[in-house]
Design a protein around this nucleic acid. Structure first.
Lengths: 136, 136
DNA sequence: TTCACTGCAAATCATTTGCAAGGCC
DNA sequence: GGCCTTGCAAATGATTTGCAGTGAA
């Protein structure tokens, strides 16, 4: 079972007992858990686990690219007066969220059978303006 | 300028001074503000405005369908061990977030010129299982 | 008069920070 | 020993709740 250990090392993450367990949970269960959910479930296996470690570990995973935090803004709720489906682009440098015109509704996967109320596309990256300031 | 007033009424929202001002801000500025940002800007025009009213109003707008809260989960950060671009579907009834296979990267809008680091597609609606329980 | 709307203050919930102790190289 | 990791406790920040005053129908 040290395949997870190797997986973490590949991202430059030193594999500790806690980190391996959290990454295993994340890859074994595709439930997109919150930090709280991970904490509650994992403490059964690791009773000494602290919530701080869960937060630290998840933040580390995201920073190193081993996991993602889904959602365009992880910290605050953001509101939009436009209720028609459209795409959002969030610039990681300036933090702005820009609208993109996009025909989203006709791009749903064919194997999907539920009812759609809202459909969004969001992209994270660097916007044109910020890119010009600091070219790579 | 009572077009906003009519707009709100159309969603079953009684138009008050505060509600009209917040909706006007939301539709005039497509900046996807947080509640905090709205509060800070609006208090210049309405000095007695309270943060509670901003939160109440935004929640009312979302409930009535006059605005949306962008992001798949407005309350908590959710994590995903799969770092490949894929689509997420969130069921409004059971709250689950389900993965959808989807070729996202080749569907970027043509008028977009920034650099893309991450691209996500998310859908909110009712999943098949919940739909069977309570058919419309 | 009644009921919805507002706003203050306090409470709650998620997340972060400060710091001390433990473990590994 | 020195550094990284952990975890407790306290702090912070966002959001919600309780409640009383105010205003419109």
């Amino acid at each position: 079972m040290n395949s997870i250990s190797q997986h973490l090392s590949g991202y430059g993450i030193r594999p500790s007992v806690q980190r391996i367990a959290i990454m295993r949970y994340l890859t074994d269960n595709r439930t997109h858990p919150t930090a709280e959910e991970i904490f509650e479930i994992m403490r059964k296996q690791i009773p000494t686990l602290s919530k701080t470690t869960v937060y630290n570990t998840l933040k580390l995973f995201v920073r190193q690219g081993a996991a993602t935090c889904i959602g365009i803004d992880e910290k605050n709720a953001r509101f939009d007066g436009c209720v028609k489906p459209h795409a959002h682009f969030r610039c990681k440098k300036c933090g702005r969220i820009i609208d993109l015109e996009m025909d989203i509704e006709h791009q749903l996967p064919g194997n999907f059978h539920g009812t759609v109320d809202e459909a969004y596309f969001y992209i994270k990256g660097t916007c044109e303006a910020c890119h010009e300031e600091t070219p790579s």
